[in-house]
Nucleic acid binder design. Structure first.
Length: 479
RNA sequence: GGCUCCUUCGUCUAGUGGUUUAGGACGUCUGGUUCUCAUCCAGAAAAUCGCGGGUUCGAAUCCCGCAGGAGUCACCA
């Protein structure tokens, strides 16, 4: 069992195409085979500097380690197609020798004219209908075309089932471009054969090209690998496949948004695949164990960011609870508000410990924890308009806060003592928890929500807590 | 336009002729957990299984037709 992911270095890996890396990886690992990373960089015009690194970075982040490929090499190196030119030429010569490929001297504008004629007549453009009669000997600088031998074809696709087409779609495709580099159509077939790839797993956009590939395998005398077609991932609106043009996000953009790799792998693997149980959360190892090509959906699936965030919350809690705060904490680096820089890791860990269970993404830390690191702006409207507090006058609110300050001043500053002090305050003020606690909470944070009040107080510390309560008393008194 | 694929709650899906008054998850709504938000728990609404025929005692499940959607028809992958 050998599978591969063969991206072209034209930019980032987006949500729409990352499953063609995940599924081959899972399959290879499950069967103790090899997962190859091959960089299909034959299009020099669309080549983007640094894209290969970005691709490798994405795979590593998701935990998809390749067994052969860039950096680590392997028995079929090199794994960059531009470095394999002579291999393609060798196979091309075989086709030329057998009369199955020809050099095409036709100028591009002539070809475009043919194409336009067909478009105007609303018939499919097939180059073989315009095949030149007089073809020169092939040399670099001229494109090399396959001489197709159209006939009805049947094949099996693991996901799509038994498929068949008539001869009308097979054409004289370009094998080698005038720059001497092969097209995808030719290169991937040669490479997969040379690298002993057993399963070709790729997106649905290649489905209509399969008949041409079948013709090529036949002409080259190669065994057809097991073909697996993945349905498209759909964009948020409409039914079109998700693509960069429609704003498909990079997989690693989600990393910067505070989505965990565990979540991403889990969510994407289960988008269009399930193991038939009602399980929703899968670890990397569980996915390897349970994955099966046969259970991949045939229809497209829409990427749902809301469910992704739900899953991320699940993973966040699970990982923190499994590993503990201290061990998980390094993964929060880069997600804190700027003001947190002034505090040490120990304090940030304390904050994280009381807030993590209400995060959906790590980036929520930026907006949800600022009051632990800097005094909030006092906004009395939050108190006056609060649904529990609006029935009280400002004098009453000041009085409640003064009583609170008096009580808390004499309290030991730990969770337990604070909680019992708060409970006693409920009795002495005869306020309901929702009333007293909301008042204190807002005075401390001026945030729409915060962790349990005793924990918030304990974490902020005596001095800061009391200072903030006093600031609000002053502000209310002057209002 | 040709060819090919797809079609179950808003979304992701379970379902391979009878245990289905079509199950689960996200989202939504309601209630509970001595405070907010979140978690957690309980509950509700939500699919005439794209439409129309047929086969069958019985169909989301098999067959045929139709419609809609998508992909593709590059010296891009």
């Amino acid at each position: 069992m050998k599978t591969r992911f063969a991206p072209s270095p034209t930019g980032y890996i987006h949500i729409g195409n990352v499953r063609s890396a995940i599924y081959p990886y899972l399959l290879a690992k499950q069967k103790h085979g090899k997962f190859i990373l091959r960089i299909e960089d034959t299009d020099r015009e669309r080549y983007v500097e640094g894209a290969t690194e970005l691709i490798m970075d994405t795979l590593k982040w998701l935990g998809l380690d390749w067994d052969e490929g860039p950096v680590i090499g392997g028995p079929n190196a090199p794994y960059f197609q531009t470095e394999r030119k002579s291999i393609y030429h060798k196979w091309a010569q075989k086709l030329i020798a057998e009369g199955r490929a020809y050099a095409d001297p036709t100028a591009p504008d002539i070809i475009n004219k043919y194409r336009q004629e067909c478009t105007d007549k609303k018939i499919p453009f097939l180059y073989r209908n315009f095949r030149p009669t007089d073809t020169p000997e092939w040399h670099e600088g001229l494109p090399l075309r396959f001489k197709s031998d159209p006939k009805p074809r049947k094949w099996h696709d693991v996901v799509m089932g038994d498929l068949s087409v008539g001869s009308e779609v097979q054409d004289d495709i370009i094998l080698i471009k005038k720059d001497g580099l092969p097209t995808y159509n030719f290169a991937h077939i040669v490479d997969d054969a040379e690298m002993d790839v057993t399963h070709v797993i790729r997106g649905a956009e290649y489905l209509s090209s399969v008949p041409n590939y079948l013709a090529l395998y036949e002409a080259l005398g190669l065994e057809v690998p097991i073909l697996v077609t993945l349905p498209h991932i759909l964009g948020p609106t409409g039914n079109k496949k998700l693509s960069k043009r429609d704003g498909a996000k990079s997989v690693v953009d989600y990393r910067d948004d505070g989505v965990l790799p565990e979540t991403m792998l889990n969510y994407l693997a289960c988008l269009g695949w399930n193991d038939g149980t009602e399980q929703e959360i899968y670890t990397h190892d569980e996915l390897i164990e349970r994955f099966s090509l046969e259970r991949i959906q045939t229809s497209g699936a829409r990427f749902d960011e809301t469910k992704l965030l739900w899953l991320n919350g699940q993973w966040l809690r699970r990982l923190v609870e499994e590993q503990g705060i201290a061990q998980f904490y390094p993964r929060t680096e880069g997600f804190w508000p700027d003001s947190a820089k002034a505090y040490d890791a120990k304090y940030r860990q304390k904050v994280f410990a009381i807030i993590y269970d209400r995060l959906k993404a790590l980036s929520d830390l930026r907006t949800m924890t600022s009051y632990f690191f800097e005094d909030p702006n006092i906004d009395l409207k939050l108190i006056i308009d609060n649904k529990f507090l609006k029935k009280f006058s400002e004098n009453e609110l000041v009085d409640f806060l003064q009583q609170s300050v008096a009580k808390l001043q004499g309290t030991d500053w730990d969770e337990k003592s604070l909680q019992s002090a708060l409970n006693q305050l409920l009795e002495t003020t005869t306020l309901k928890p929702a009333e007293l606690f909301s008042l204190i909470r807002i005075a401390l944070s001026y945030a729409p929500f915060s962790p349990a009040l005793n924990l918030t107080l304990a974490t902020l510390g005596r001095e800061t807590s009391l200072a903030r309560l006093n600031s609000t008393i002053t502000a209310l008194a002057n209002a």
